[in-house]
Design a protein around this nucleic acid. Structure first.
Length: 432
RNA sequence: GGAGACAUACUCAAGAGGCUGAAGAGGCGCCCCUGCUAAGGGUGUAGGAUGGGCAACUGUCGCGAGGGUUCAAAUCCCUCUGUCUCCGCCA
């Protein structure tokens, strides 16, 4: 969400930004918003004046009553009733206009960074750098679910019977790698100075509304029946909502957190869940990084954060690349965003494992997350988030890239302390 | 889940229909005293959101949230949320 004052003073820029994002259907919103704002302010002045009058007359009534001047007081009461009559209409309009204004403001996308590549959809995302050689081994890499099956490590069939499509049982070594990867990622971020957090996994509807759009809520969030609670889709939801309506101290910033949580997603919409593998499912676990900082620091944090992802994946011998999201692929709240994609030697292409975003003050404005500067001024913080690791997806990359010709899987050195020191895990049965 | 209490500014806290946007204190600023520190004395000051105005300034909203009663609500009524204590149930 943008600042209405900014929209007022930078109409062309805001419209240009909408065009860059190929959302021309939203162009009329800008003019509408400016006009609504104008109307609202006029109305507010009118209302304020009437309210002022009401307050002063009411005060006089108080004085008169104390002096026992009943009749005069009664006279004044009639005046106030009259003022209230006039006010009723104005206040209703004030409310409906400000609601309409807010709704429209929410639909206007955040300004994007000047250097974001322009493009309509994800096909125009730009590869910026590769880290590690994308190796294609001379033996065939099976489908990830089959590799896991060879370790007796995945049971989707039973999960289907118990919970339905979109769930999995991870078993034995595969489950152990899952936990190890999470623990490793946790410590990796702690060593970067981030604070480890475990947030609530269910949140109230007002918190939900603060952190996501209506569409997202419909397509993602599971609601607990009979309670005002939703299962979180990512710990970012809990972690950002934590600061709703807060005024932070300057010395509190930056707030750097790495949070663990299971994530629950309905995955309604374009993709749907994956039938066979564990690429897209209803429930997975994730280690996230979230940063709240001063506006002048957010770009620096953005660069640090995506680099952490690269470093982490490289430490597990997984080749990655940085893919910069183009204008049309950026969600409306984002100033810039990139995906870190892991190499899949089976598909011979990269696939998304991390998504790093700088939302500048868009989320903070919506949630009123500010900090007080030394001179007493209050300023919105900038918020950023990035995946540290989402095990199911990471496991796909992990098993494909560390698979040996004999079907065993190497445990990278960095992960060994979390795997009881072992260097390799061995299949329990042949694939096919 | 049951029973009770509570929710006021950065913090503690007064406040029971008009004179309260909120006493008092801590805090914070400056000064004095003390070799330094702790402590003490004096003095000053603030406060959340938003509108109008070039500005000086000024208005509105605001006492957990949302409704209601009233000419007038921090104060009365209703709903919700949260916190604490006790009991119950459990990992």
């Amino acid at each position: 969400m943008l600042d209405i004052k900014f929209v007022r003073e930078n109409r062309e820029k805001v419209e240009e930004n909408i065009r860059k994002k190929f959302q021309d259907q939203k162009l009329p919103l800008v003019g509408e918003v400016i006009q609504l704002d104008e109307e609202y302010r006029t109305l507010k002045v009118k209302g304020d004046n009437l309210r002022q009058e009401r307050n002063s007359v009411s005060n006089e009534i108080g004085t008169l009553m104390r002096e026992g001047k009943r009749e005069e007081a009664e006279e004044r009461k009639k005046q106030v009733v009259e003022i209230n009559d006039q006010l009723k209409d104005i206040e209703e309009k004030e409310e409906s206009i400000s609601r309409e204004l807010k709704e429209k403001m929410m639909k206007i996308p955040n300004m994007i960074a000047d250097d974001v590549p322009i493009g309509e959809d994800d096909s125009k995302n730009v590869e910026e750098a590769r880290f590690g050689e994308p190796v294609v081994p001379d033996f065939e890499i099976p489908y990830h679910a089959d590799i896991m099956a060879s370790f007796n490590g995945l049971d989707k069939e039973a999960a289907g019977r118990v919970s339905g499509n979109g769930f999995y049982y991870l078993m034995g070594d595969v489950a152990r790698v899952h936990s190890a990867v999470l623990a490793y990622a946790r410590d990796f971020m702690i060593n970067k100075g981030f604070t480890y957090c475990i947030p609530p996994f269910m949140i109230h509807s007002d918190a939900v509304d603060g952190v996501m759009s209506f569409e997202e809520k419909e397509n993602m969030m599971y609601k607990i029946q009979g309670e005002d609670l939703y299962l979180i889709g990512t710990s970012e939801h809990s972690m950002i909502a934590k600061f709703k309506d807060q005024i932070l101290k300057e010395s509190d910033l930056p707030i750097t957190m790495t949070s663990y949580s299971p994530c629950f997603r309905k995955e309604v919409g374009a993709h749907g869940i994956e039938e066979r593998g564990i690429y897209r499912i209803h429930q997975f676990e994730k280690q996230e990084m979230v940063v709240l900082c001063k506006k002048e620091d957010s770009e620096e944090w953005y660069n640090k954060m995506w680099n952490y992802s690269v470093e982490l994946f490289r430490s597990l011998d997984i080749p990655v690349r940085k893919l910069v999201c183009c204008s049309g692929d950026l969600a409306d709240l984002k100033y810039r965003s990139c995906d870190i994609e892991a190499w899949s030697p089976r598909q011979k292409k990269y696939f998304e494992v991390c998504s790093c975003s700088n939302l500048t003050d868009a989320q903070a404005r919506r949630l009123a997350i500010r900090y007080k500067k030394e001179n007493g001024e209050k300023e919105l913080v900038h918020t950023l988030n990035n995946t540290v690791i989402a095990p199911p997806r990471m496991l796909i990359a992990f098993f494909e890239n560390n698979l040996c010709a004999d079907g065993s899987v190497n445990i990278p050195v960095a992960l060994r302390p979390y795997m009881g020191g072992i260097e390799k895990i061995f299949p329990k049965k042949d694939i096919h």
